[in-house]
């Protein structure tokens, strides 16, 4: 990781005594899609806001595109695109007016052409005069993405860009993100969805404001160190309930007609598998632990965060 777009160390932020981000270190390599995962209230939004200068960290340092995040937030803002979690363009402006306003903020040259192109790319050219507030959720997200990209930033910070968007729109959204990454744009994206996490090059998982794990996405499962068995057969529900009580089993997750049974303790899990295979009611097959299992495991072990409420 010689070339990085963002690098922060020791980032800390408290809100009324509660430590929302705690001593966070993170390096986002240039041109990568970096997935930022963690339960609600784990500090993802706060971290992203500190990276682009919207919040001042209590402690820590870092740089974004070579600019100091504490001193040079002005330059950072000119070179990044930030898409907020909640739709935060003007609902009482039209689609075109919104894009035009953002383009003016960045003092774009040949503004009209860029806005036209953005509308064209969005497929909204014929609805340019529609008020942004009347768009559906999915279209709002796409408009927001178009708006934060209009000045062609080198880094995109996307805060849960696909929350509440239908699957088709999500897929389109990710196609777009991959296309941008292909052009060399660095994308830091926070998400809840595991099917989105698997599309990232790198992943960091945080809970309680603390980073639990980060690295190349394909290496995450082995870093977590889970072993997994696939279980197929009849009456999976009853088996699932029984296995959950078994101390040798770390977690049971159902994927359609298959159970994924995993655990950190490989030997203990193997014993359970032998015992169950002997019953001949279900097929047990060993498989390499995937990202899905790894994340279910991580989430299960940071459950307490869900109760803490608020987006921070």
């Amino acid at each position: 990781m010689s070339e990085h777009a963002i690098s922060v160390r020791g980032l800390t932020k408290s809100f009324s005594g509660r430590r929302v981000v705690d001593n966070l270190e993170m390096v986002v390599p240039k041109g990568s899609i970096y997935g930022f995962l963690g339960p609600n209230g784990s500090g993802k939004t706060t971290t992203i806001r500190m990276m682009c200068g919207l919040l001042t960290p209590d402690a820590g340092e870092g740089d974004c595109l070579g600019f100091d995040i504490l001193q040079q937030s002005g330059q950072i803002k000119e070179n990044i695109g930030y898409m907020t979690q909640k739709f935060s363009l003007y609902e009482d402006l039209t689609i075109r007016e919104n894009l035009d306003f953002v383009a003016r903020m960045y003092k774009m040259t040949n503004r009209k052409a860029r806005v036209d192109k953005a509308l064209e790319d969005l497929g909204l050219a014929d609805r340019a005069k529609q008020l942004a507030g009347t768009l559906s959720g999915g279209w709002k997200q796409r408009l927001a993405l178009a708006a934060c990209m209009i000045h062609e930033p080198e880094v995109l910070l996307l805060d849960e860009p696909t929350a509440g968007v239908d699957p088709k729109a999500r897929r389109d959204f990710w196609d777009e993100i991959r296309r941008l990454a292909g052009k060399g744009v660095t994308v830091l994206v926070s998400t809840h969805y595991m099917d989105e996490a698997v599309q990232c090059d790198y992943i960091a998982y945080i809970a309680y404001g603390k980073k639990l794990i980060d690295g190349l996405a394909r290496e995450i499962p082995s870093m977590v160190g889970l072993s997994t068995w696939l279980v197929e057969g009849p009456e999976l529900g009853a088996l699932e309930a029984a296995l959950r009580k078994d101390p040798g089993v770390g977690q049971v997750a159902r994927f359609g007609t298959v159970l994924h049974v995993s655990g950190i303790d490989t030997a203990a899990l193997e014993k359970v598998a032998e015992r169950e295979t002997a019953k001949k009611t279900h097929d047990w097959t060993r498989k390499e632990a995937g990202l899905e299992e790894a994340f279910i495991y991580l989430m299960a072990h940071s459950q307490d965060n869900f109760g803490s409420g608020g987006q921070a």
């Binding site: 803002k77 930030y82 907020t84 739709f87 935060s88 960045y106």
Partner: peptide, 13 residues
Amino acid sequence: ERGTMETLISTPV
């Protein structure tokens, strides 16, 4: 209140 402030101040304004 509408959240548009976040977008506004994330620009260089």
